[in-house]
Simulated scan of single mutants.
Amino acid sequence: MTEGLEIPALEAGVVRVFSLSMDEAEAAALKGDAARLEAALGAPVEDPKWVEVLAVADLEGLGLAGYLAEGQGIAPETLAPDRARLNALEGHVMLVMSPAFGGAPVSLAPASAVTLVGVYSETRPEVRFEELPAGSTKGNLAGPGGRGPAPATGAGRWIFWGALALVLLLALGWALWGR
């Protein structure tokens, strides 16, 4: 198994960075084109909007590492070991986010012009569950007008079928005797 090139089923929150050894026109042609992205990555891309192709020169002042931190939610400490290498890249890069593959397990076999630079996980805030204040869970479930939800009984069903039967009987009686 090649590290970083195997995408497990239902992967979430991972960004893969690839450098592209291609000219501007070739890189631009990849944008949003599932067939070309599939050829470049060697695997089916279900949702091309989760693949971003950009010129590193467009990130001047921010740099690729800054873009990954600010734009993709990757913790700066996660990027720290690769910061110099990421910011030294030139030309075009391709950022491939987990949802691009639609939750399917995928083995990437990138074309020769596509080189994996790194795999980074997005920072997720810690989930904390706190007890609700004492009186906040008490209240009225009634909607506007002070009426609560209808009771869960079968009475409504019987009324509907009874009314339908009455209408059908009246229509039948009129058809047979009312002419």
Rank of each mutant, 00 (worst) to 15 (best):
M1H: 14
M1P: 04
E3S: 14
L5Q: 05
L5W: 08
E6A: 09
I7M: 04
A9I: 11
L10P: 03
E11G: 00
A12E: 00
A12C: 05
G13C: 01
R16W: 08
S21H: 04
M22H: 08
M22I: 08
D23F: 11
K31V: 07
K31E: 13
G32C: 05
G32W: 06
D33I: 02
R36V: 07
R36L: 06
L37H: 07
A39D: 09
A40Y: 02
L41I: 12
L41C: 03
L41V: 15
A43D: 10
P44Q: 00
P44R: 01
P44H: 00
V45K: 04
V45Y: 11
E46H: 13
E46L: 12
D47N: 15
P48D: 09
P48M: 00
K49L: 05
E52R: 03
V53G: 05
A55L: 09
V56T: 13
V56H: 13
A57Y: 10
D58W: 01
L62A: 12
L62S: 14
G63T: 12
L64Y: 03
L64D: 00
G66E: 08
G71N: 04
Q72Y: 03
I74Y: 05
A75E: 15
A75N: 07
A75V: 01
A75K: 11
E77D: 15
T78S: 14
T78G: 08
L79C: 11
A80F: 09
P81D: 01
P81R: 02
R83K: 15
L86Q: 04
L86N: 11
E90I: 00
H92C: 07
M94E: 03
L95A: 04
L95Q: 10
V96H: 08
V96R: 00
P99H: 02
F101N: 00
F101W: 06
G102L: 09
G102I: 02
A104T: 11
P105Q: 12
S107T: 05
L108W: 12
L108K: 04
A109L: 02
P110R: 09
P110Y: 12
A111Y: 14
A111E: 06
S112D: 13
A113F: 00
V114K: 05
L116S: 14
G118N: 12
Y120L: 00
S121H: 03
T123R: 11
R124F: 12
V127R: 14
F129H: 12
A134M: 03
S136C: 05
T137C: 02
T137N: 09
G139S: 01
N140G: 12
N140F: 11
L141K: 06
A142N: 14
G143T: 13
P144D: 01
P151M: 07
P151D: 07
P151S: 08
A155I: 09
R157H: 06
W158T: 09
I159Q: 10
F160H: 07
F160D: 03
W161M: 02
A163L: 15
A165Y: 06
L166D: 01
V167A: 14
V167H: 02
L169N: 07
L169V: 13
L169P: 05
L169T: 13
L170I: 00
L170M: 10
A171M: 15
A171N: 06
A171T: 03
A171E: 15
L176Y: 12
L176S: 07
R179H: 01
R179S: 07
R179L: 03
R179M: 05
